[in-house]
């Protein structure tokens, strides 16, 4: 049985707006529109989408603090909204922008409080804490008040606090936001270990695609409240109709070359950039250019994942744009 089951889930919000002096209009806005997906135990899933796509709304419903308007949800065998407190014992939640640590007290006190809140048996608590302290290098910081920690240190503290009760699912919302490169890598390494070493299921919401590339075998792209892609990162390229670029250096400046299946996107002196579908082989293209033009050098550039996602978001694909209701009007972060 899947650990997370989402079955036809929608969520609408009523937005009231002023229209004239006394009239008020009510408008139904769909933040999430017929979501269907399952996540198996032990998966690490990247959940990405532009602002207002419905990411936070989904996570809120999965954690039970928002009731879906339609559809069915189950997380770790529990209906989240109906049994929120029971579910709370089985999930861990980390927000990059919010802390659950006790601001004015040493880190140690916050961990101790987690033990009591989740009633973690002493030996298990000890084991989990030792593991987190070692992997996140938090040992020396235990007696430092949280307010004196750097953002990276605080983030590591929050990660540890979310895992001390052995949650089966860990929800992460922008866990690397605002962190420097070193802290980012350390957080990613830790999350990888939690996912692969400890078998914790991870659902990662982020705008940092490197997080997704490093950690997730599966990525879901949501836009206008619908899933527009669900699969491996590599498949994203095909879905996003992304293009590779063939850069050719000719012997001398030359008008744009004309070859079938590619178009020139840029010319700079003797150098020209040719875009062609990522799914096509570059070999015939290279052969044709070499046969007809004075070719000196060439290179092939792969599309950046950012560009692929950006194309998906901007709705260049006709399929994604169609049927997207008013979802974009809701900005839930």
């Amino acid at each position: 049985m899947a650990l997370i089951e989402v079955d036809g889930v929608s969520r609408t919000f009523t937005v009231r707006a002023r229209a004239g002096r006394f009239r008020r209009t009510r408008r139904e806005v769909r933040a999430v529109d017929g979501l269907d997906f399952t996540v198996e135990e032990g998966e690490c899933v990247g959940y990405i989408g532009p602002n207002g796509a419905g990411k936070s709304t989904t996570v809120k419903m999965l954690t039970g603090i928002l009731v879906p308007s339609a559809g069915r949800l189950r997380v770790a065998g529990v209906d989240p909204a109906r049994e929120r407190v029971r579910l709370a014992h089985r999930i861990g939640v980390v927000f990059g922008q919010r802390t659950t640590l006790w601001w004015d007290l040493p880190l140690r006190d916050s961990f101790e409080l987690v033990r009591r809140v989740y009633r973690v048996p002493a030996d298990r608590f000890r084991r989990n804490l030792d593991r987190c302290l070692e992997m996140l290098d938090l040992g020396p910081l235990l007696d430092t008040p949280v307010r004196q920690l750097s953002l990276g240190q605080r983030m590591r503290g929050d990660l540890a606090a979310a895992l001390l009760h052995d949650p089966r699912v860990l929800y992460l919302d922008e866990p690397t936001i605002g962190l420097d490169v070193v802290s980012r890598n350390r957080v990613r390494e830790f999350l990888r270990e939690v996912n692969t070493g400890h078998g914790t299921t991870v659902l990662l919401t982020t705008h940092d695609l490197t997080d997704v590339e490093r950690l997730c075998s599966r990525v879901m792209v949501i836009d206008h409240g619908r899933v527009v892609h669900d699969g491996g990162l590599a498949e994203l390229h095909a879905v996003g109709e992304s293009e590779r670029t063939l850069v050719v250096d000719l012997a001398a400046p030359h008008p744009p070359v004309e070859v079938a299946g590619a178009r020139v996107v840029r010319v700079e002196g003797p150098r020209q950039w040719l875009a062609f579908p990522a799914s096509r082989s570059a070999a015939p293209l290279v052969a044709e250019v070499a046969a007809r033009y004075p070719l000196v050098d060439l290179s092939v550039r792969e599309p950046a994942i950012e560009d692929v996602i950006a194309r998906l978001y901007s709705g260049e694909r006709a399929g994604a744009a169609a049927g997207a209701g008013e979802g974009a009007a809701v900005r839930s972060g």
């Binding site: 809120k60 929120r84 407190v85 029971r86 709370a88 014992h89 659950t100 809140v117 989740y118």
Partner: peptide, 11 residues
């Protein structure tokens, strides 16, 4: 809206 986060805790 941080108060929503408090609801994640079983307290």
């Amino acid at each position: 809206g941080d108060v929503a986060v408090d609801l994640y805790r079983p307290v």
